[in-house]
């Protein structure tokens, strides 16, 4: 078991090399504690502190299974950005992350999946939210041959709020999937989910969204939206919204639509001199805006806007 603490002020940078936490390459703020136990890296953010954490996963082509546990202690605020770098061709990588968001704590988790073209990547993020906690996730599937995000959230305390924003933009023969389950096990919790898929070429985009409301989870407010665009006749999108509601005292709504770029809008823009490619780009940026505008910083919004082209 190792514990690392450093005097880094401008946020923490945690580097993983093939599933193993690389202490010597990392910078850790002193209110963050890191320990490794039986292959699981435990990241703990002290109560009532603020943390900015960048987690960088380096994959080198073997089959690493990274296991991480993040504990946001009560009243703490954590912003966690996860990125992935691949130094060899055709890696298959796997990350399981368990996040416990303590009483009154806030956790904002951003996953930017921009891997190499041949990369296969699967992530499982399981979140447990205590009373009065907030969890916001932004999941971007941008590049990789197969990207799979299994996102689970369970509310184990009342008034736990969840927001999940997902954007998936498969090209070529890429297959990207969101598989989400939000469990309302306690009364008085809110969930808002907004997922968008833009599928180009011969790609496949999948959204599965389960919202489960337990019999005693009264006054649940849940909302799910999944809007998709097919950019090519050979692309496919599958949308599977699922609601399982076992109590009456809830407000739940969900909607799913899949269509194409608006032809009349493209024509209108071309009639103004805008080339078809630019016109498409403007419509795509307009479509993703609802998701990207939720990112907490302009740098992140610019980063994503540049990748979504």
């Amino acid at each position: 078991m190792t514990t690392i603490n450093s005097k880094q002020v401008q946020g923490s940078q945690l580097v993983f090399e093939n599933a193993t936490f690389a202490a010597q390459k990392s910078l850790v703020e002193n209110h963050i504690e890191i320990s490794v136990s039986e292959g699981v890296t435990i990241i703990s953010v002290s109560a009532h502190t603020k943390a900015h954490i960048h987690i960088l996963h380096n994959f080198h082509g073997t089959l690493p299974h990274t296991q991480i546990e993040i504990r946001i202690q009560s009243g703490a605020h954590a912003l966690i950005i996860e990125t992935y770098a691949v130094t060899e061709k055709l890696p298959k990588a796997n990350i399981t992350t368990n996040i416990a968001v303590g009483n009154g704590a806030h956790c904002e988790f951003i996953s930017l999946q921009h891997l190499s073209e041949g990369a296969q990547f699967a992530q499982t993020i399981s979140v447990q939210q205590s009373e009065n906690s907030h969890y916001t996730a932004h999941v971007y599937q941008i590049c990789g041959s197969i990207l799979h995000s299994k996102l689970g959230v369970e509310k184990i305390g009342t008034q736990a709020n969840t927001a999940i924003y997902g954007l998936s933009y498969p090209h070529r023969k890429e297959q990207f999937e969101f598989d989400t389950t939000v469990k309302h096990s306690c009364p008085d919790c809110e969930t808002a989910e907004n997922f968008k898929i833009i599928a180009a070429d011969h790609s496949v985009g999948i959204f599965g969204g389960m919202i489960y409301v337990a019999p005693h989870a009264v006054k649940t407010a849940a909302q799910q939206s999944n809007k998709n665009i097919l950019l090519s006749p050979n692309a496919r999108i599958f949308s599977k919204p699922q609601l399982e509601i076992y109590t009456d005292d809830v407000t739940c709504n969900h909607g799913s639509t899949t269509g194409q770029l608006n032809n009349d809008a493209l024509w209108y823009m071309q009639a103004r001199g805008i080339a078809p490619e630019t016109a498409k780009q403007l419509l795509i940026q307009a479509f993703v805006h609802e998701i990207t505008e939720k990112l907490p910083t302009q740098e992140l919004r610019d980063f994503v806007a540049a990748k979504v082209q």
Partner: peptide, 13 residues
């Protein structure tokens, strides 16, 4: 054209 502002549209044109 929802989501495309008049400024961006006009600038592109």
């Amino acid at each position: 054209i929802p989501g495309v502002s008049m400024t961006n549209f006009m600038k592109a044109a």
